[in-house]
Amino acid sequence: MPGLHAGIRSVIHVLPNEAWTGLLFTALLIEQLLNGLQLGVMLFLMAAGLTLIFGVMGLINLAHGSLYMIGAFACATVAAATGSFWIGLIASLAAAAGVGAIIEVAVIRRLYDRDHLDQVLATFALILILSEGARWLFGSFPLYLDIPLLLQGAVPLPGGGQYQLYRLAIIGVGIAVAVGLYLLISRTRLGMRIRAGESDREMIGALGVDIGTLYTVVFALGAALAGLAGALVGALQSVQVGMGEPVLILAFVVIVIGGIGSIKGALVGAVIVGVVDTMGRFLLPSLLALTMPASQATTIGAALASMLIYVVMALILAFRPSGLFAAQA
């Protein structure tokens, strides 16, 4: 690959100016597309848990972002103590799944036959408790997590750019999780029960499946996915209280676009949101610059780009009020 890369570089140098800009633009475009994909994969990890929990238990869980935060804190703390990112990653899965299971048994279990208002309020209260609790334990200063040695460095892109290996690895993890979830749900006994739970909760209880345990397992699984997402992102950004909330709201947009309860919808929705958001921020300012002064275009472009995914969501809902892949009524 390095040879090929050098080759492309040397070609670039002999190209005339316009073609060079074009190639540079292509490289930048590919880089941004990958960034969008990486954001999408991250959102998928969050949205898959949310949509699974809603599909099986009919519960709207605002505290999902707190589980993301817990994963990140667990990873950062354990990685700092042991010096190994990988042990931290395992710790983040364990911590998020553990806290998820505890929350499910102590609180969430009482909410399944309540209306959405009670669910929203109780999980909102959980956010206050978990956020303030995390601030209590870890303080207000952000923690930092290093990218593991194995995944440091960059990969050359066609067109002459470079791309961070770690971000590529995140995309790989996301694809692996998507495949794993697909196999889990379509091929295993647990998956069969989850599907049965989605279509008729009372019936599978009546057929002798221990529905309480199933719910705890599904909730812990969703929590572990959120924790994994938090740990992976923790190495890209700082780890701090409140980091889960923007991601949670994007994940809501994802599952609304995809259709609540549908894992496939979550995957498609996540990629749409990730790519549209990233490309909007990248392209809108330059597109606007064609019609107005550059400084103005940057400001207006940035402001419009921050609204873009919500506009896309509104458009999709105007045509498909229950999302692209509505799972059930």
Partner: peptide
């Protein structure tokens, strides 16, 4: 737009629109 939906969708969509205005105000 939001009232075309109901239940959980309505909760999340109203939330999302509010966030849209929030991010607009920030940027």
């Amino acid at each position: 737009v939001s009232l075309r939906t109901s239940g959980v969708y309505f909760i999340m969509i109203t939330l999302a629109f509010a966030q849209m205005i929030y991010y607009f105000a920030i940027s």
